[in-house]
Design a protein around this nucleic acid. Structure first.
Lengths: 337, 337
DNA sequence: TTGTATGCGTTATCAG
DNA sequence: CTGATAACGCATACAA
C-alpha cells in the first residue's frame, strides 16, 4: 500500500496524490475528493521512512532519559510525560534513549543516525560530555537543566539556588537558627549534578547571609536512606529545628523518622524544600515547598527545540523558572526551649 | 556524509562499504581496514531512514503508554523502563505513543506509518479497540495485560486473580473474618480495566470459598482518596480487620488514615495486596504483598515481540506470571476482642 | 573479492 | 491544474 497504488486507483499521478495530501500545490476539488475516497477506503498513510528520507526530516524528537536502573523520580517522570504530550500536540513522535552519562550505543544512534530532528536531554551534569557531543554533531538540542557554562546553548531549568534561598529565608523569618539541607545522594553530588550542587550553594549562601547555623547531608534516593539520614541528623545535631530538601524519594523515610522520634510537624520541626507537587501534597502534613513545574518545563523544552529546528541560526534561548513557594502546613515558628 | 562519500574516500564502491559494514559478504581485510579508517575519521553512521526504507524494517519498537494526564503508577513506570532497557540491549530504539483508549493521531501514526517493527501496548482494557486495530493492521504486537478473549494474540500479564486469592487465603489463615478489597478507581472498573476486574473476581471467589465476609470499595489513584476511603471503611464496616489492595497511589493516604485512627499494623489491622516492590518496602511497616515483577514483564514483552517479528507465522505465545507473596510485616493474626 | 544497477516510497523540481 | 522524473541514502541481486 503505497502512494503509487493510490495514484493508480484514483487515476492520477503520484505527485498529484502527494500534493493533494500536503496542499503544497493547488489540486482541483474533484481530484482531491477522488483521492481522499481511495485513501479512506484503503486506509493509506505515507511511509514514514520514505518521507523522512525525501524530506530530510523525521518528524521525531529524541528524549534522552536516565537508564531504568536509576529509578525515575516523580519530577523526572513529569518531564517525560509532558515532553511526550507536548510533542504529540505538534504531531511529533518521541524516541526514547536511555543513556547514563557516557555516550552509549543508544545515544550514538540518536545523535548520528539522523533518526530525530532534535533532542531533549534531561538529568545532565554540570560538565556533561553528551552536551559536547550534541554540539559538535550540530543537531538541535535543548537541555532540561543547564551545564556550568551554558554558553550558546538552549536550555530550561528551575532556579534551585534561588528557590532554596527562599526556603532558607522563610525558615529564618520563622525564627529557626540551625537548619539542615537534605540533599540528593553523595554520588550525584560527586558526579556534578546541577540541582544538588546549586541547592547546596544556595543553602550555604543564604544561611550565611541570615546568620544561621548550616548543616548539610547527602541522602540516597530511597525511603530507607531518608529514615537513616534523619535519625543521624537528630543525634549529630540535636538542635536543628528545620530541614530543607530536594530529595523526594527520601520523604517517606523522613516522615517515618519524624514519627518515630515523636516529632510533630510543624510544631516540633519544620520541613520545606523543592518537591513535586503530588509528593508535597501526599506528605503529612502537606509540605510548604516550591513545586517543580515539571509539566511547564517539558512543554517549554519542546517549544524551544521546535524554534531551534525551525531556525537553526537563531539566537540561543533559555528559561530559568522560579516558581513560587506554595504555603501549605509543614513550616512554623521555632519553638523555644 | 553518506555511504557514497565513504566509498569515494576509501577508493571502493558503495556496495563494498555497505557489505563491509554488514558483513553479509566477504571483504578483504585490507579493504575493511581502509573503510573503517575513513568511517572513524569522518564519524559516519548510516542514515536510519534510508536504511529502514531499503531494508523494510525500522529497528524501532513502539510503546503505547497512557497519556501523561493520567499519571503513571510505579508499576507502569517499571514497565516503560524495562521495555526501553530491554530494547536497547537488542540495539533497538523505542518510540513512545501516548494514547488513551481511543485511536488518536499518535497511535495511528505508529500503527500505519511503518515507523516501527512492532508494538508493545500497556494498560489495556478487557475490550480494547486498539488491540483490534493492531490485529487488522497485521503489525506484530504484544500486550502487557490481556483482553477478555485473547484468542490468538501475544501477551504477558500478572495473574491478579490468583494473587489476590492467595492474599485472601493468607488472611483467612490468620483468622480474619471480614476483609475489604481496596480496588482501583470506579472509572477504571467501569471502563473495563483488567487488573481491577480480575482482582475483584478473585477476591469475591476466594472470600466465598473461605466463608469470609467480603467488602469492596473503589478508590481513586491518590493519597487523599486512600485516606477518605479508609475512613469510610472504618465507619461503614467497623469489624473489618484486614484489607487487600492493588492501589499503590492510595497507600500514603491509607497509611495516614491508619495512624489517625490509632491503628497499629499488623497488631490492629492487616494489610496486603499486589504492590510495586519499592512501595511495599516504603510502607510502614513493610507490606506483605505480591511484588509486581514489572521489570521481568517488560523484558518478557520485548522477547515475545522479537520472536513474533522474527517469525510472523509463529504460534502466539503468552506468559501469565504469578510471583510469590513476599512475607514482610504488615499482616498478622486477627486480634479478638 | 569487488563493482554496477535497481528498488524501497516519498517529496519536489521541471515541464506541460 | 497535472504528469514525468530526479533525488534522498542505503541494501542487495546480478555480474564480473
Amino acid at each position: 500500500m503505497n502512494i503509487g497504488e493510490i495514484a493508480r486507483r484514483a487515476g492520477v499521478s503520484r505527485s498529484t496524490v502527494s500534493y493533494a495530501l500536503s496542499g503544497k500545490r493547488p489540486v482541483s476539488a474533484a481530484t482531491v475528493q477522488r483521492i481522499n475516497d481511495v485513501i479512506a477506503e484503503l486506509g493509506y498513510r505515507p511511509n514514514a521512512s520514505a518521507r523522512a528520507l525525501a524530506e530530510g526530516r523525521t518528524r521525531t524528537l529524541g528524549l534522552v532519559v536516565p537508564p531504568a536502573s536509576r529509578r525515575l523520580t516523580d519530577v523526572q517522570l513529569g518531564f517525560v510525560g509532558s515532553v511526550v504530550d507536548a510533542a504529540a500536540a505538534h504531531d511529533l513522535d518521541v524516541l526514547l534513549s536511555p543513556s547514563g552519562g557516557d555516550h552509549d550505543r543508544s545515544f550514538e544512534r540518536i545523535v548520528t543516525g539522523r533518526r530525530v530532528d532534535g533532542v531533549i536531554l534531561m538529568e545532565i551534569l554540570l560538565e556533561d560530555p553528551r552536551v559536547e557531543r550534541l554540539s559538535q554533531a550540530s543537531l538541535p538540542f535543548v537541555t532540561i537543566g543547564h551545564v556550568e557554562h551554558p554558553g550558546a546553548s538552549w536550555w530550561v531549568d528551575v532556579d534551585y539556588g534561588a528557590l532554596i534561598t527562599r526556603c532558607v529565608h522563610h525558615l529564618a523569618d520563622l525564627g529557626h537558627e540551625e537548619v539542615v539541607l537534605i540533599n540528593r545522594s553523595a554520588e550525584l553530588v560527586a558526579a556534578g549534578y546541577g540541582p544538588a550542587l546549586r541547592s547546596a550553594t544556595g543553602f550555604l549562601d543564604a544561611t550565611a547571609a541570615r546568620g544561621l547555623t548550616a548543616r548539610t547531608v547527602c541522602c540516597a534516593d530511597e525511603a530507607a536512606a531518608g529514615l537513616a539520614c534523619f535519625e543521624q541528623i537528630r543525634t549529630q545535631w540535636p538542635s536543628v529545628t528545620a530541614a530543607v530538601t530536594i530529595n523526594e524519594a527520601a520523604l517517606p523515610g523522613v516522615q517515618r523518622a519524624l514519627h518515630r522520634a515523636g516529632l510533630e510537624v510543624p510544631r516540633d520541626f519544620s520541613l520545606t524544600g523543592v518537591i513535586a507537587e503530588r509528593l508535597a501534597e501526599d506528605f503529612h502534613p502537606p509540605l510548604t515547598a516550591a513545586d517543580v513545574p515539571a509539566v511547564e518545563l517539558g512543554r517549554l523544552a519542546v517549544d524551544l527545540l521546535l524554534a531551534q529546528i525551525a531556525d537553526a541560526g537563531a539566537e540561543p534561548r533559555h528559561a530559568l523558572l522560579e516558581p513560587p513557594i506554595s504555603l501549605r502546613s509543614s513550616t512554623g515558628a521555632r519553638r523555644h526551649g
